[in-house]
Design a binder for these strands. Structure first.
Lengths: 215, 215
DNA sequence: TAGATTGTTAATCGATTAACAATC
DNA sequence: TAGATTGTTAATCGATTAACAATC
């Protein structure tokens, strides 16, 4: 195991390994080799072994990896074994959808509560999650110290709300606003830019239309 | 201009350039150099020039780039100038949220209609978009030939629905199901894996908690 | 003109893949 | 034991950055 800097490319592959191992685990498979897993996932065996070696030695020569064990280890690396508190800021359609559908526990978090400015929403509860006034945000953060905030406010309020959250000691922001946030570098920002994602799909389709017509 | 293979890394940076140029354009800025844009975006000037050179020559020595022009060119590369038809399959909370909030036109698409299995939804209209029965899907695709389907059905129906869409000639799938879809390689699949995204945030927070406590 | 900045070629850096000794 | 497969070191490949002649 090399205790060096771990690249973003490696980190972004971990959830996918985790997902595959979870599925194998559910299906009752006990062991797997890097070769077999790689074939199934469409990556090289080398890459899997190289990636895992950043974090430790989880396999056994001549055998491969015990699925339950490796899954647990990757879960630990990703931090799902120690769930942290999470709040949702902005209960519009998207915030609503996340509260209703998304399994935060599987992502290593515990959804505590939500905040919004709309008096129609404040005091209600969505899928068992209480919606509070933004006025309570400071007091709430001081008391419960949530680690992460999901930012699902309108574009126009994005940076201002992020600043508030950072000032209140939030450690990470899951940003759905499609706005480029600037923040203290100690705060982790994970962007989910729908627009960027769809544009890459547009590109690929435009490109292969062009290729077909130029043949 | 080199007419070679264009890497995924380059393509994924284009929407971000587009976003910045759009903002500058809105603010009325006329020209920008790769140096200034790079500083603002936190990338090197070399990278910007190298990326753009994959597609043509858009700048002028001693001057830089005309923002309106470059923005239009990147828009063309991304295919936003020729909007394509898009349908939404699955009108749960997330499908709903996308219909209500998301500006598909900006992403190079025109939202035509939506499909669902729920009889409570079929025949209604969400934000001006008609919700049809899945039974109409085949006939609809045969007639309108939509380019892209947004897949917002439950996990359990994901692969089956994707197979149907592919058989009906869909060219791309914007996949929100957090399921790894397999499909003919001529179909572009763009995954928006919320769970993977949140796990990387969990990792970063778990990691710096560990670092702080080990000091 | 002189200064600025491009597009591109060359150099560097990092990430992926291949090879292999160690060993279960 | 023999075969399989690991973790790691070395080789390759690709992506990023730097340098610079061309020129607006």
């Amino acid at each position: 195991m090399k205790k060096q800097h771990i690249s973003d490319a490696v980190i972004r592959r971990l959830p996918r390994y985790y997902r595959y191992l979870d599925e194998l685990h559910t299906r009752g498979v006990v062991r797997i080799s890097s070769g077999t897993l790689g074939k199934r996932m469409g990556v090289t065996a080398s890459q899997i072994r190289q990636d895992l070696s950043c974090f430790g030695e989880f396999g056994q020569q001549g055998y491969g990896y015990n699925i339950t064990e490796l899954r647990t280890e990757i879960g630990r690396i990703l931090g799902v074994d120690e769930p942290r508190r999470l709040i949702i800021v902005g209960v519009g359609h998207l915030g609503h959808a996340l509260i209703q559908n998304f399994d935060f526990a599987q992502g290593g978090f515990r959804l505590d509560t939500a905040f919004d400015v709309s008096s129609a929403l404040i005091g209600t509860s969505v899928n068992g999650v209480a919606v509070r006034s933004m006025d309570e945000l400071a007091a709430y953060c001081a008391e419960k110290i949530p680690a992460v905030a999901v930012l699902t406010v309108p574009k126009s309020a994005a940076q201002e709300t992020a600043d508030r959250l950072v000032a209140l000691g939030i450690r990470g922001i899951w940003n759905f606003t499609n706005v480029e946030l600037s923040a203290d570098e100690r705060v982790s920002i994970e962007n989910v830019h729908f627009a960027d994602s769809l544009l890459t799909l547009s590109y690929r389709i435009a490109k292969d239309s062009a290729e077909r017509s130029s043949q």
